[in-house]
Amino acid sequence: MRWQSMLAIYFLFWAFSVFLVLPFGVRTAHEAGVELVPGQAESAPHSFSAVKVMIRTTIVATVLFVLFYLNYVFGWVTTDMLDWAHR
């Protein structure tokens, strides 16, 4: 696999992992024990740390990409194994 392909696939894993990571560690104003701003939804997060999200996303994406690459190298799951319609 070329390094450009690996980089593109890693970027896709990273972009997907953002949506996996975003809900974790979120605290609402009620959970943080602070007053709501007028017009603020009760479910809105109290604070947001982009650095924490990026670090967590990078860790998750790296683990998923390593598993993907190891499967690519060793062939643990192939397309023939997943083709249930033509058996």
Rank of each mutant, 00 (worst) to 15 (best):
A8V: 13
V73P: 03
S43W: 14
W14A: 05
E42H: 10
Y72I: 09
V21I: 10
I55G: 06
L64R: 11
V18G: 00
V63Y: 01
L12Y: 07
D80C: 12
L7H: 02
T78R: 02
P45H: 07
V34C: 12
P38F: 15
V34T: 10
I55W: 09
V66W: 06
E35Q: 07
M1H: 03
F16M: 05
F65H: 09
D80I: 13
Q40T: 12
P45L: 02
V66N: 03
W14P: 01
Q40A: 14
Q40F: 09
V73F: 13
R2A: 01
M81T: 05
F13G: 00
R56Y: 04
S17W: 00
G33M: 00
T28L: 00
E42W: 05
F19I: 10
L22V: 10
M6I: 15
R2D: 15
D83Y: 05
A15C: 05
H86V: 03
G75C: 11
E31T: 08
S47T: 12
H30D: 15
G39I: 11
H30V: 10
T62C: 15
V66M: 09
G75V: 03
H86F: 14
F13K: 03
T78H: 02
G33Q: 12
D83R: 03
F65T: 00
A85S: 06
T79Y: 08
T28C: 05
L20P: 07
R2Y: 15
S49E: 07
A29H: 06
W3Q: 02
L67W: 05
V77G: 00
V26Y: 03
G75H: 11
A50W: 13
R27G: 04
F13A: 00
F24R: 10
A32I: 09
E42K: 07
L20I: 08
E31M: 12
P23Y: 13
S17G: 07
A61Q: 05
R2V: 07
L82I: 13
T58N: 06
R56N: 14
Y10A: 01
L36C: 08
G39R: 04
T58M: 12
A61V: 06
M54L: 10
Q4D: 10
R87T: 14
R87S: 07
L7K: 06
R27D: 09
W3H: 11
E35L: 11
V37N: 05
W3R: 02
L82Q: 05
N71F: 08
L70D: 02
A50T: 09
A41I: 12
T78W: 02
E31H: 04
F68N: 10
M54G: 10
W76T: 07
A44V: 13
W3I: 08
T58F: 04
S17K: 00
V66K: 11
W76H: 06
A32R: 13
W84N: 15
A32L: 08
V21D: 01
P23W: 01
H86I: 08
H30T: 10
Y72V: 05
